[in-house]
Design a protein around this nucleic acid. Sequence first.
DNA 1: TTTTGTTAGTGAAACGATTTACTAAATCGT
DNA 2: ACGATTTAGTAAATCGTTTCACTAACAAAA
Lengths: 392, 392
Amino acid sequence: MTICPNTEIFIIARLLKFNFPELGHLEFLYRSVTISDAMSNNGDAPRDKKVTAKPGDSVSLKDLALHLGLSPTTLSLVLNDSPQAVSIPAETKKRIFDGARELNYRPNYLARSLRVQKTNTIGVLVPELSDGYSAMVLNGVESALSKAEYFYLTASHLHREDLLEKLPRVLIERQVEGIIAVDTPIRFKPLIPVVNVSGHDEIDGVTNVVLNHQHAAELGIGHLYNLGHRRIAAIKGQAFSSDTIVRWETMNDAATKRGIPLDPALMVQLQGDSPSPEVGYSAMKSLLAKGVHFTAVFAFNDISAIGAIRALEEMGLRVPADVSVLGFDDIYAAAFHSPALTTIRQPLFEMGNLAARKLLERLANGDESGSPKTVSIEPTIVVRQSTSRVSE
Amino acid sequence: MTICPNTEIFIIARLLKFNFPELGHLEFLYRSVTISDAMSNNGDAPRDKKVTAKPGDSVSLKDLALHLGLSPTTLSLVLNDSPQAVSIPAETKKRIFDGARELNYRPNYLARSLRVQKTNTIGVLVPELSDGYSAMVLNGVESALSKAEYFYLTASHLHREDLLEKLPRVLIERQVEGIIAVDTPIRFKPLIPVVNVSGHDEIDGVTNVVLNHQHAAELGIGHLYNLGHRRIAAIKGQAFSSDTIVRWETMNDAATKRGIPLDPALMVQLQGDSPSPEVGYSAMKSLLAKGVHFTAVFAFNDISAIGAIRALEEMGLRVPADVSVLGFDDIYAAAFHSPALTTIRQPLFEMGNLAARKLLERLANGDESGSPKTVSIEPTIVVRQSTSRVSE
DNA sequence: TTTTGTTAGTGAAACGATTTACTAAATCGT
DNA sequence: ACGATTTAGTAAATCGTTTCACTAACAAAA
């Protein structure tokens, strides 16, 4: 007769305590085994541990192991095709795979992630989902991540300061391996790798993916200048938008370089955070109300350009005959608006894609900070019908 | 002098093995304590167990407990404000909270979720992110989920059969508590609660959130009929779109009811899965190529309506003077297109919001299937400039 | 004096995987 | 015939929490 180890511990500990009462705090060695347990268990057969399959619940590795009469260890080795599984005969492997299929075994990702300290999950911060911009970038992010079998949690901060502080924290609590911020200020310490799409601050631990704004401004201002425009109005982005300042400055530089510095009186800034053309419409209305003269408008984005066109037309001004309008982004609707928008194309999908690839790279390389802080993408200009030669 | 328990175990086990070699399998009792360890430790002060904070790593409950000289149990009770924490004096509680703040303790969500069997995470299936439709629905979903402190994993299936089968599986492996499918066929067994936005199949375990399509068709066809239109062309949705069939059928019913059944020769179907107006443009081109006569077009959505308008204008047909165009959805651009689109407004944000709320409800109520299989939302018609009285 | 209750905690067992370090039995090499 | 190696596995520790079931020490009640 063999003795169950637990029983032995129990007996030994009892003896110990009897002979050396001062070692009482070793009690925990036997406390978990009650006397009746120790007595009733003859140690021969492993008892039926209510293996009757939890109701609708999913089957765990232990369940499957019990079902197959093997240990969880063996199953794990085989199912993950571990190098140590070489010694397991093909027949047993087949039995395991068949059993897994039969019981519809699905490994629990939480448990696995906890053990291997890897979640294959990243967090994505966006201002809002339905603004077109974020959705396009996200599309690119998703495309790169899914290739690497990563998933992502999305969180919208709506430009609220409390959320800008809280969301990164809870994403990190949820063990995301990295964060992609889209057009979002970094209000947290980057404890994990962060890639910022359209970020312009140099922050330790943050890689910026940006458009080459200088080039974009050259293309835009150059195009209008070449068409003869000298009095160019500008629709500046909302204060919360990451690109607002750099776009404004590069436009100014490009115009100044050509000897036609932008007139502050011809500048209006977008107000409000609606993703509708309405904000561009209002901005243009207020510019027109000032009664200033201009022959072209460089809008912050296509959405606001569309709103601006509406405002111009309501004033009886024809686009492009009386006023040329230049957009930015090249959203899907740009080509089909009437007039079709001339615009600076910003490859948002590629920027999201690049951001995700950079992040994965940093995760894979253990984040040796040899990588550059900023990577940039080139814009192109798409000439359509909303701009034309100045007619004066 | 007190003796460190580990040392004691070590010594006792050695003695045991010496005196009772047949108990060798109890070796594990001392194996983890090396001789030098046991020797060098005089047992007086709890040694600094390399608590020097793992490099950049995060601090666990155990770390914090060690730091405070308390047990993880106590910390857990206090930090989670468990009812059992009443017996812990306020001073100790303060010490714990201060320590947590000081060491920047963040509970590990994986571990917690594993233990309490609750992830506060759901999965969202969409065809593609940048199609406008999905983004709007997602916005509503997010808004409802964030109120309940839920997060979500997004996955795009791109209408691919393999992904339609695989994505739900991996989402479930990742322990999402439920799934929201947006304009997506259910190709999996709903083992967890599922809500389908724009789903029309009655499936056990699936709640459908739909637009009242009959009403939408009445509004649309009724509007055109009242303007005198009798020959109405229709742009039917892509085959993969959940709403395609029901929209087509309800339109037909509404037209037939008014004695002007839709002429099959005046129907074109969208081809291709680009989210650009281009598909509507091509569809209208091919309809125009047939040389048939019609005075109005009822488009599947605003995007295709915009494309169709471009095609009509290229043929020299004015909208709405020669042809009225009716859209569907009321996307942001609809109001600012020229001509501004008359359209059937589909409250996508609300539909996403409702879907999320229904799902949370089912999760909270243990999913007693007393809830209705389908909930519907009412459309409205927004009359703008793209439709007008027939001019013949 | 025993019983009962309160206070201030603690130990160990979950949760469901992976991984390290073993073992018994069979086979091989000499 | 003996040790070494291979084969076919297994036990237990681990990841970081929560929670159940305890306890020691002291006070109040019976």
